[in-house]
Computed example of a mutant assay.
Amino acid sequence: MKRNQFIAVVLSLFAWMKTKAINVQQTVKGFKVPAGEARFGIPYNMKGVTLNQLDIKISGKDTDSRLAVFEQTSLTYKGGPPLHLHLNQDEWFYVLEGKYRFRVGDDLYDMTPGDTIFLPRRVPHAFIQLTERGRVIVSYCPAGRMEDFFAATSQWTSTPTKEVIANVFADHGMKVVGPPLKAD
Score class of each variant (00 low, 15 high):
123 V>A: 07
64 D>R: 01
99 K>Q: 14
52 N>D: 14
114 G>K: 07
119 L>K: 02
106 D>W: 05
145 R>N: 05
65 S>P: 04
35 A>D: 12
92 W>M: 13
141 C>G: 15
12 S>Y: 08
128 I>N: 01
93 F>S: 02
162 K>M: 07
117 I>L: 09
165 I>A: 11
32 K>N: 08
131 T>N: 11
159 T>H: 12
178 G>M: 00
21 A>V: 05
125 H>Q: 14
92 W>Y: 15
165 I>L: 10
29 K>D: 14
65 S>I: 04
101 R>S: 01
50 T>N: 08
165 I>E: 15
121 R>T: 01
115 D>Y: 05
184 D>F: 01
103 R>G: 01
66 R>L: 06
175 K>G: 00
174 M>S: 05
87 L>V: 04
29 K>I: 08
2 K>V: 14
166 A>C: 12
116 T>K: 11
97 E>N: 15
9 V>N: 11
154 S>K: 09
119 L>C: 15
56 I>P: 05
12 S>H: 11
155 Q>R: 13
161 T>E: 08
19 T>D: 11
3 R>M: 06
32 K>C: 02
26 Q>M: 00
59 S>F: 10
17 M>Q: 12
153 T>F: 03
44 Y>G: 03
17 M>D: 08
54 L>S: 08
42 I>L: 14
162 K>C: 03
119 L>T: 12
41 G>R: 08
10 V>T: 11
90 D>W: 03
167 N>I: 07
149 F>L: 02
88 N>Y: 02
157 T>S: 15
147 E>Q: 15
26 Q>L: 02
60 G>K: 01
97 E>Y: 12
14 F>V: 13
125 H>W: 07
9 V>G: 08
7 I>R: 15
110 D>L: 03
165 I>P: 09
159 T>C: 08
82 P>T: 02
66 R>Q: 04
181 L>S: 01
94 Y>Q: 14
183 A>K: 10
131 T>C: 11
164 V>E: 15
